[in-house]
Amino acid sequence: MPPILEARDLRKEYPGKLALKSLNLQLAPGEVFCLLGQNGAGKSTTINLFLGFIAPTAGAAYINGLEVARHPLDIKKHLAYIPENVLLYPHLTGLENLALLSSLAGFKYSENELRDYLAQAGLPPEAASRRVGTYSKGMRQKVGIASAVAKRAQVLLLDEPTSGLDPKASNEFSELLQQLSGQGTAVFMATHDIFRAKEVGTRVGIMREGELVDVRPTAALNANELEQLYLTHMQ
């Protein structure tokens, strides 16, 4: 099966700093890859390269076989993105924000369908018609999750997506990821949360100073072993 997400010798340098050192990675449909690493390790840089927000210094990123740098708009039809801190238009309601994001993605949903997506993401029904300016960080995060689900993307790029979610919501999100994965969606998730990575990931990668230093199938490790492995690489 051809990879849905791929990095070939993907490299990013800034003046005086190597942000990503020749990353080679392939994700198959339905795979959940969790990338662990400290702040500044290069996790967000990798996601930004897959999103086309920054240009690689060398190598290439591919989504569904399309090179990101050459097809910056086409690849976005195939992926959804949830940042660490989902920020939305504060003067619009959750429904209006979701309608905007899904319409930009090319989907025209009825209000009921949008409400269903928001409910699926865990947003209380009465909050959907409230202005986002009154939302907590966790509620905004749920609108972001709803937008990703509503986009029916083949690839999910997640940058600390459970940041700000309470344990119950985080657990619901994990279930949602597993459900999407079961439907064939590939997930690339940057996270600090080792236990969440073990719980939802099919593979886990450890990144250090811009280099992917280790990749393991999560089935081969328990949570403690994974934590030990991570700490070993961080020393």
């Binding site: 086409d74 039809k77 940042p83 920020l87 930009l104």
Partner: peptide
């Protein structure tokens, strides 16, 4: 500055 741009530009819009 409001942080909305990444989510907007993650959609197929330039």
């Amino acid at each position: 500055e409001q942080g909305i741009l990444p989510l907007l530009l993650a959609q197929p819009v330039s």
